[in-house]
């Protein structure tokens, strides 16, 4: 059907659930196999006539109608609205200097934040999987805080902490490091909201990693660092990239946690989502929508890239077991 080759499910299903709130990162290998098993029942005859279970038409029909009404038709509105512009007009709007400056900040800070989270996310995942220490379960549960905490709350908390008289700000400002109301503030906010992605994509892979591999490498004389670099890292790499891409994708659209700490100065610390809102408030619907379309196209491309990365993660993991 969908997957030409049946992939044996890597490990037990339980490891998957823990990480799945981040990404539909797993269970795919198994689920496709299950889907195919279902298909066997229907393969012998004409499709609809041989379906044993009822409710296919109703459930699929409802799904499609609801999907169109809530998601697809409203999203298409953005593209139709932008189609009113000619191509040169569109290019002029989306490449204006203020807009370009916002792209640079949004994508630069998102990339930086995702990179920080890749390094520290791997570290946190490693520590949570490999070591036992007091409070580990609590720390593990709290890693998801940025998913659960409303972005506006994160925004005002970070802005308060890093303002000149806040807990962090009062330490950093005398050193000449101003975080609040600068691009650095954007980086801090995006690091906060992207924090769980890498941890939650890497964690299940590390849990499933057969210990024998490392033991074998150690027996063959590899140092611990070589062991990590040559054995663990290549296995974790697809998940690490997936986590990076998820954190990056989330960061470029982020609004609530950033605007309080960013200062929002045009050309300096104004992110693209805020620019869309600014244009809306000036009743420049066409301009706002044109920029939104650029962001949508980039987001959709990232979504496809993430899907491909997740498929790679599953294959890499499947090859191990």
């Amino acid at each position: 059907m969908i997957a030409p080759i049946m992939i044996p499910d890597p490990g037990d299903p339980e490891a998957k659930i823990a990480g799945r709130n981040v990404a539909r990162s797993d269970a795919g290998g198994r689920s496709r196999a299950a889907g195919d098993a279902g298909a066997v029942a229907t393969r012998s005859g004409r499709r609809s006539a041989r379906r044993v279970l009822p409710g296919f038409g109703l459930s699929l029909g409802y799904t499609l109608v609801y999907l169109c009404l809530i998601v697809l038709i409203p999203l298409s509105a953005a593209f139709f609205k932008t189609a009113q512009l000619t191509w040169p007009e569109f290019v002029a709007v989306v490449t204006a200097p203020r807009v370009m400056a916002s792209y640079r900040l949004t994508f630069g800070a998102s990339f930086g934040a995702a990179a920080i989270n890749t390094v520290f996310g791997l570290l946190v995942a490693w520590v949570l999987v490999r070591y036992r220490f007091p409070g580990r379960a609590l720390v593990d549960a709290l890693v998801d805080l940025p998913f659960a905490l409303p972005t506006a709350v994160a925004g005002i908390a970070l802005a308060g902490l890093f303002s000149a008289n806040g807990w962090f700000g009062s330490l950093l400002v005398p050193l000449g490091i101003t975080v609040a109301f600068t691009p650095l503030g954007v980086l801090v906010a995006l690091t906060f909201i992207g924090l769980p992605f890498v941890v939650r994509t890497v964690q299940p892979v590390l849990e499933d990693l057969p210990r024998e591999l490392e033991e074998a490498a150690a027996t063959l004389g590899a140092s611990r660092w070589e062991c990590f670099r040559r054995v663990v890292f290549p296995i974790v790499l697809p998940a690490l990239l997936t986590g990076f891409a998820l954190a990056f994708a989330r960061a470029i659209g982020e609004y609530g946690s950033v605007i309080f700490i960013a200062g929002n100065m045009p050309m300096v610390s104004e992110i693209t989502p805020l620019l869309i809102i600014t244009k809306l408030e000036q009743y420049d619907y066409t301009g706002a929508t044109a920029i939104a379309v650029v962001m949508l196209v980039i987001s959709f491309t990232l979504l496809l890239a993430i899907n491909a990365l997740q498929a790679w993660t599953r294959r890499r993991q499947g090859a191990l077991t």
Partner: peptide, 26 residues
């Protein structure tokens, strides 16, 4: 089926600001 599953995930990759904007457009 795969396309449908991807489309269901679509709102997660859309910036919240754009989610609001598209309803204003309608």
């Amino acid at each position: 089926k795969n396309v449908l599953t991807t489309l269901i995930d679509l709102p997660f990759s859309v910036s919240p600001v754009i989610a609001g904007l598209i309803y204003v457009l309608i």
